[in-house]
Structures are given as C-alpha cells and as structure tokens.
Simulated assay, not measured.
Amino acid sequence: MKKHNYSAGPCILPQEVFEKSAQAILDFNQMGLSLLEISHRSDEFVAVIEEARTLVLELLGLQGKGYQALFLHGGASLEFLMVPYNLMKVNGKAGYLETGTWASGAIKEAKLFGETLILGSSKEANFNHIPKGYEIPKSLDYFHCTSNNTIYGTQMKAFPEVDTVRVCDMSSDIFSRTLDFSKFDLIYAGAQKNMGPAGATLVVVKEEILGKTGRTIPSMLDYQLHIAKESMYNTPPVFSIYASLLNLQWLKKQGGIAGIEKINNAKAELLYAEIDRNPLFKGTAVKEDRSYMNATFVLENEAHTPIFDQIWEQAGISGLKGHRSVGGYRASLYNALPLESVQVLVDTMKALENKV
C-alpha cells in the first residue's frame, strides 16, 4: 500500500532523492566507494557542497548580493545560540517575536547574552495566531522571528519593516513560498523540515553584518570562521548535505520556489476547505495566520478519535498525530508531498462524516 507521509520532520522527500541517495551509499559517482566513506575533502565531495551552497543562493535569489550559504551542525536549536553570539553586541539588545515553542527556545538562549525583548507574543492564546501591532525599537542589534510554527500551525504572511538586522528561523517553510529573501540579513533552517534528512543546518547570512559584536566567539560558533573555511572547519554532515543537494536539484526542476508554491497553495487550500466544511473537524489556528506547511486541526467530538484514527491508518496515512504537547492532528504539507496524498486525507475526513 502506498504511504502518505505527513510527518513534521524528519519529513517526506522526493522518491528520486531516496533512490539517488541509496545508490550513492552503495557507489558514489562510480568511484567504487560509498558516499559514507569518502573524504569530505575529496574533490568529489567538495564539488557537492559547493554546488549545494551555490544552488541555495540561486533558488533564494541571493546570488551576487553579499550572502554566504553555510551547511553546519546542531540543528536550528544551536542557531538559537549562534545568532546572539554573532550579532548581539556586548551590553547590547535584541528583539524577538514569540510565536511558538521554537521561538521561546531562541529567546531563552538570547537572554544569556544580553537584554532580550519580547516584542509580541501569542503565548497566552496557546500560540494560535501571529502577534500584530507590536512596536520595534530602533536601538536593537537585531530583530528575530520564526516564519512558520510546526507545532501550532501558524505562519507569518507578512514581515515587519525594521531599521536593524533581520533574522528569521525558516526551518519549516524555507523553499516553500516566494519571498524577497534579500530583506533578511540572516536565515537559518534545520534541513529535516523541508530540505533534506536530519544532520545538516543551513545558514544564509549577509557577510557585512558580522564581526561587530565586540565578543570573542568560540571557533565552532563563529560564522566568519565557517565562511572562511567554506563550511569545512570540521567534518560536515556529508550524507545530509548530499541528500539536500539532490532535493534542491529536484526543486529547481519543479520551477524553483515559484513553481512549488503553486502546488503547496493547492494542497493547503484543498485541506483547509475540508476542515472548514466538515462539521466534525475544527482548525486550531486563526484563519488569517494558518500555515500552508503544517495544518493543525482537532475533532469537535473526541469520542470520534478511535474511529477516525482507524480510517486514516487503513488509508495508508502516516505521521498525522499532532505534536505531543498539543494533541489533535497535524498534516505537514512539505514540498514533496503530492496533491494526491492530500486528497486521500480529505477523503478519510469525509468517510468519518458518513460513518458517524
């Protein structure tokens, strides 16, 4: 039976990425060696990481604009620490938008380095919306936001104008929709949400914002050092970077971000239309802030849970359960999920309506 993978991360990837990755593990580039055993400094892998870094900037429209793309370790969670280390001045100040669990984690780390202002928060409403109407002081070293919130199913549809450095955690919706990425000075994302397998972290940074904090930064946490070493300061996550490259190549063949955005919009609109139509279900995020990557919803009557769970599991759907901290259901609609899979989910929701 075909599986329909709604996992929030590690997430679905294109079938051709799995096939090419599997072949590379057996024999990479007809070298007679596995990708897993070659030197990360070999010509063959250097070509991989250079193409991946170039393709990132190409897809984001940032080539020739003073940006560097880095593949690092530690996931987005380490970037919670690296961002203030590299951007918050001694005795400095940063502003954060608190829109979910991961934003709260970033705020916690920033507080270790200096004054950290929460400019807007939706915590009291269980993060069911994106805060609006907040003010951004001009004295900040940087402004930080999270573009998409996987747990609560919200997404920023617009970004505030700022007079300082703008940082965005785009872990769960990077490469999924068109934006003017040049309006961001630093973007970071864990690969496992919409780009590749777990293990690599993407950082896209404008070089001119670095080196101004007055801090002594440990080597492994210093963006400038990683730029100078071309993401090779220490052994990079070879397999994750290679699979990410394959995924970026696949994305380019889909028409790039603009091409995949049309498909993503169709998927989200199909699912949300059923959530709103079907009296047995209710979306958990405010409609204007609904995520097009992670749709969260609940049953109006929890007594229907075992019946619905049986229906979708028998339909070959996987990974639909909501995050353990909030319950309900979460359909992650990442780039590689086909529209066909969304239709299968919609059909199971209609089947429940007919059954009860």
Rank of each mutant, 00 (worst) to 15 (best):
L72W: 09
L117R: 01
L72Y: 06
H73V: 12
K89A: 01
Y152L: 15
Y67E: 01
V90K: 06
F127T: 00
L117Y: 05
T99P: 11
K132E: 13
H129P: 04
L70T: 05
F71T: 04
D43F: 07
G95W: 02
K108Q: 07
Y96E: 08
A52G: 11
S139D: 10
Y96K: 03
I49V: 07
C145Q: 14
P137Q: 05
S42I: 05
E135K: 10
I130W: 03
G75T: 13
Y85N: 02
L97M: 08
Y67G: 01
T116Q: 00
C145L: 14
L57H: 01
T146A: 14
D163C: 12
S147D: 13
V48D: 00
S77Q: 15
P131V: 07
A110W: 04
K132N: 15
K93G: 02
G100M: 05
L117K: 04
I130A: 06
T99M: 05
E161C: 15
E161S: 15
D43K: 13
Q155T: 14
L57E: 04
L59A: 05
T154L: 13
G95E: 01
E44P: 03
A158H: 14
E58C: 04
A103Y: 05
K123G: 01
E161G: 13
G75C: 14
G61F: 03
G92A: 03
K132D: 15
K65H: 11
L60C: 08
F127M: 11
E135M: 12
E58L: 00
F80V: 03
S104K: 06
L97Y: 03
M82N: 09
R41F: 11
K157W: 11
V90T: 08
Q68A: 09
G66N: 09
F143K: 10
V46Y: 08
T101Q: 15
E50S: 11
K111Y: 04
L70P: 06
A47T: 03
G95C: 02
N149S: 14
L62A: 07
L55N: 00
